[in-house]
Write a protein that binds this DNA or RNA. Structure first.
Lengths: 246, 246
DNA sequence: GCCACCTGAGTGGTCCGACCACTACGAGTA
DNA sequence: TACTCGTAGTGGTCGGACCACTCAGGTGGC
């Protein structure tokens, strides 16, 4: 009903966004290709440069386009990582019960990804997993631990052979998200438990045992999930006023 | 550390986006709340209205803000559905091997969601599932079938009790995505098979049998997955690692 | 008294033109 | 040949003007 073909539907900018998206979807614009200048594009669609800039900005934050100052506007590679960067925004802006939901999704995907990785992981990838595991255990700096923890799981997700899933999991473990949740979690002396869980995951990967890997990963994320749930059960999180029973 | 806190990092617009996002993350802007006018906001951050408009447009497409012509700018409810609308863009712009990856993710999430739903689904929800199932079988109009198919799975996802997962699954089954893939799939006379699979899912839900529900849902999505894989098999077989039966 | 209508201030939407900051390429030079 | 440096062209920012729409408050009729 609200589909194209009609003279005009929403705002001019919105139409411009759809037009460019359509051009990419139809293959008239290839990944990496350079677009005409803002001025030319605006003229082509018969709109002002301001409106065209808003459309470009919108597609930029969506990871579809990339603007290089002084050079031009380009279509991104359109790979999973480019497009799913916005997933981090969801994680950053979620609070309360939705955080638990996000962790539940991560548990489901991460456990499956780890199981797949156990079956497919190569020697090189396994070595990289071990590298991050060792680095994680060799320092006490929270920042460094989080960084290697992230990389640890990323290697596994990639080894699972699904780039899109790896990108989603990366968004679900974004720096700020992890920092927010883990700050409290780790303060309760969860370091030792985390190390044990990571070791269990590594063991299952090395043994190429998918079921053990699935269980270990599920337990790993599940621990955080349970803790977070308990956190906002009795009292809501600090900063937010009052538990909202929507 | 990674930024100089004081002077400036990226573009003016980018900074404005971060500022507003931060205001929301810190709770200084509540869901549903109205923001100052574009002109005031621009003045507050010391930037031009044009740049502020680009920032607002960016946050609008991300589902964080909502602009109502003549009324004002408001923070959305910030619920999963609002923020994950952009997920549909990923599905719409993905082609070739990435489509299979997306279907694999949908298979994983959908099977788990269906299993959860089997355990939790209420009588009312089950009735709604049956309603869409009947409507789906009562027509030959592809558009209508797709609509009820979508609603069928949506009810199940909601019954699983994870709104975020339901929103993601909705994005993975967006109208255009489904239309693109299913056009070819259904042309091969998959109607009968689809009906049988839907019936199996419903049966498992009615019996409150999670394992049967998981299997039925996985098979349902897996069928499309296999078909799609075969479609682009002969043409391009990129550097994916060996096929592993899951 | 009540309700429909109208008006106007205020808001987002669009356009324009100017200038700045940066990149890329090629002419000029050593 | 290799390097430097200018410059045309690009995205980034700004300010102002006007249009399209919403909504509250007043106005008029009933």
């Amino acid at each position: 009903m609200d589909d194209e073909t009609a003279p005009q539907k929403g705002t001019v900018t919105q139409r411009a966004i759809e037009r460019i998206k359509a051009m990419i979807a139809e293959g008239r614009l290839e990944p990496g290709q350079r677009l005409p200048t803002e001025r030319d594009l605006a003229a082509q669609l018969g709109i002002s440069r301001s409106s065209m800039r808003e459309a470009i900005r919108a597609l930029t934050v969506l990871g579809v386009l990339e603007a290089r100052h002084g050079s031009g506007i380009y279509v991104t590679r359109l790979e999973a990582g480019d497009l799913l960067e916005t997933f981090g925004v969801v994680a950053d802006l979620s609070r309360g019960p939705r955080l638990v939901e996000l962790l539940e999704i991560r548990r489901i995907l991460e456990s499956t990804a780890t199981a797949l990785a156990a079956a497919r992981i190569s020697g090189d990838e396994l070595a990289e997993v071990e590298k991050h595991l060792a680095a994680m255990n060799a320092t006490e700096d929270p920042e460094e631990i989080i960084a290697h923890d992230l990389a640890f799981h990323r290697v596994i997700a990639v080894a699972a052979g699904n780039e899109t899933m790896a990108a989603i999991l990366e968004g679900l473990s974004s720096r700020t998200f992890r920092a927010r949740v883990w700050r409290g979690y780790q303060e309760e002396g969860a370091f030792a438990r985390t190390r044990r869980e990571h070791a269990a995951i590594h063991r299952a990967l090395a043994a190429h045992d998918p079921e053990a890997a699935r269980a270990a990963a599920a337990a790993h994320v599940g621990e955080v999930e349970q803790w977070l749930w308990a956190q906002l059960g009795p009292q809501d999180m600090p900063g937010a006023r009052g538990a909202v029973a929507t």
